[in-house]
Amino acid sequence: MIVAAIALNTFREAVRDKILYVLLAFGTLMILVSRAIGWVSFGGEDKIMTDIGLTAIWMFSGMVSIFVGTGLIYKEIDKRTIYTILAKPAERWHFLLGKYLGLALTTLVNLLVLAAIFVGYLWLCRAPVTLALGEALWLTFVEMLVVTAVAIFFSSASTPILSAIFTTIVFFAGQLTKWVVDLGAVLKDSHPWAGKVLYALYLVFPNLHNFNIRREAVLATQDRLQMAIPANELVACTVYGLAYTAALLLAAHLVFRRRNF
């Protein structure tokens, strides 16, 4: 109950944030412009349009998670409003989880709005729409759950600017962890230990590339197929995302419970 109250309040606070609307407007603009970019092409107009739309949703949802998420806890501490919350029968984990769920709800609403505009626009332009797009959007949401947890983790320990920088680094690096293993293979002869270290890093770092099935979804949609990846793979990616989110929130709680305001 307490968690739900904090979450709803966080959501209300986030939707009042101007940055959310700026990002939403840019995301919408990018989706709408995608058709014009498709026109320039010789063939593949629908594919280019779908590609740009999915990438825009991913990019702007990521920005919402990073820029809105990293300021939330700090703002409460800075304005001293956290005292009024913690003075009530609310534990610190209530506060942290509430903040996280509120932000996740904001991300979900943002993603749903952009997705509705995207799918509506595809439909208007008579481009193919299948459930494969839903798969890609679902995994984008799961990815945002992880990114939001990363933002909350840094936000519970640091200032908003540093948190934004760290979360952005994790967001970027998380997309490329797959290639870290390849780099280890290249360095295997010259630095035999490098491969092991890089592999360990690969396992520890969130592998956000798992959630990127945009290429598969676009191709499946062009071929009028309903599934971009098999259902068991979709479930595996979702479980991976939720487990990583839980780990990050626990780590955030560990830091936050020892923090003095």
Binding site: S41, K47, I48, D51, W58, L176, R214
Partner: peptide
């Protein structure tokens, strides 16, 4: 492209 190879191909 941060692994967004499809849009890079476009």
């Amino acid at each position: 492209s941060l692994g967004n190879t499809s849009i890079a191909a476009d």
